[in-house]
Amino acid sequence: PAPSNPSHFMKGAIIQLATGELKRVEDLQTQDFVRSAEVSGGLKIDSSMVVDIRTSQQRPGLVALHFTVGEQQSKVTIDVPPEHPFFVFGQGWSSCSPERTGQLYGLACHHLQVGDVCVSITLQQPPQQQKQPLQQQQQQQ
């Protein structure tokens, strides 16, 4: 496989959860990500729904994945190789080309499709940044 393949997706790779627990990448469950985000404090898990999958215009050979992210349903598009695995809630590892993922990483994958909801992370918003009316903030102090 090309050297640039991220080795943390290689079957058997050891992953450390925020709780300190060690697990193999192929054994991870949805709960592991959710609990790790809770424990780590600075990170938040977002549900990102795949709304469109296209071949990337800018970078041939890559796939453009269109997501709606989190409660605000903000639109985010990323270009990834078709074999790049994503963790889908309640389903596990999935990619646009499960055969290639299996060949390159040895990781068994479902076929990623529009409508799948993937685990993604973003920075935890510190509370005061949320848009709360001013008076309500004063009462809290």
Partner: peptide, 19 residues
Amino acid sequence: VPVFPWHSLVPFLAPTQSD
């Protein structure tokens, strides 16, 4: 044996300023 942090496995999808 290398150990990888859990968050390196999931994409960081924050809305870009243009959203």
